[in-house]
Design a protein around this nucleic acid. Sequence first.
DNA 1: TATTATTGACTGACCCGAAAGTCAATAGTA
DNA 2: TACTATTGACTTTCGGGTCAGTCAATAATA
Lengths: 206, 206
Amino acid sequence: MSSETKTRRRRKAERPAEILDAAFEEFVQHGYSATRLEDVAARAGVTKGTVYFYFDAKERVFEEMVRHKSQTFLPDLAMQAEKAEGSYTERLQALVAYTYAHIAENRDSREVLRFLISEGGRFPELVDRHYDEFVMPMIDQFKQLIDAGVAAGEFRDAPASEFVEIIMSPGLLVCLWSLVFGTRKHFDLDAFTRASTDLILRGLAK
Amino acid sequence: MSSETKTRRRRKAERPAEILDAAFEEFVQHGYSATRLEDVAARAGVTKGTVYFYFDAKERVFEEMVRHKSQTFLPDLAMQAEKAEGSYTERLQALVAYTYAHIAENRDSREVLRFLISEGGRFPELVDRHYDEFVMPMIDQFKQLIDAGVAAGEFRDAPASEFVEIIMSPGLLVCLWSLVFGTRKHFDLDAFTRASTDLILRGLAK
DNA sequence: TATTATTGACTGACCCGAAAGTCAATAGTA
DNA sequence: TACTATTGACTTTCGGGTCAGTCAATAATA
């Protein structure tokens, strides 16, 4: 490995992330209980002892790994919302498309959701953190846009504008489909995105 | 236990289901890998040996348990569709409401979904079976209704009518919300159902 | 009807591999 | 030399799976 040549100090700075990345792959493949920390270590190119040098228990590795993999999407979405232009319809359309595409492409987010579903009971703090730092901000982001659209008279003040979750639900379906069926059952993402946005925008239109 | 008084022959007829019910509870609480067959046995009021008398491996217990818990909703939905009356809008509305309510109330279906998400990789046959016997029929049920509505000129021939999955996606969101947050984060199901159906019907209307 | 033989659901002690976690020794680095 | 990141052998616990044996229920027999 080329990284072997680096100094120990530099290695120390990188080790935790390396271990967490390795842990991610193992946890994805086998689930929390069935992954062996020894395999995680091997994948990271170290031994079990080293893992315990940085983390004091398997649970901690898992928690840190989820935290490590959760810090991507949100800033991007905010930026996307920032730079959106045109009518509120167009902006919403763009934001929805961006979100769906992200879910479809970003394996990390998807697998984090899987972890929350399968291991959430064992790690309630993780679930709460995710709610505060991910679910709520995301909902707010969309809510803001829709409220503005309603205020501008472009969207009707319908029940749906009160429940932004609805708008995100087709995205969730895409995510779930991918988690359960992978690529085994075909799914036409483009067509689905078009159909969903069409339905949503029409449902909101005045 | 009153059941102790039953004859051995009668017990044999009931044991498997008893064990599978116990297994369901344990698997729900701890996940596949972390459940001990000994605890399953204890919950069913027998010993591990008895479990192995009826099932030849832990995997089999899990598979049979999922099968055991999957046989409810579909016939009910078909019946509901059968006896639906009024305009296609009204029928669709009724069917959607029925589906969402079922998801919200039926713990078994919800947990089966959790199993598919968390253990689907380990049990691909289970996933395929579920697709054939549950997902596809459900989609067909809705598709039939919508096609009829389009043919009758009541719904427009929109992209959404091609992708029935969209209509089911708010229901999935409810399900997921419940799986991840349980009752910890409040969710107004009635309002959500109203808002979703409103959006869907308006999106489909001519 | 009373006695005995047979069956088979069920038990629980046991085996064994596996994995979490420990730690004394080592080797690279400042 | 002092320090610390890393090793890998070791301990311990735990749980899936096995199997020889038990005993209640039933069938066969007198």
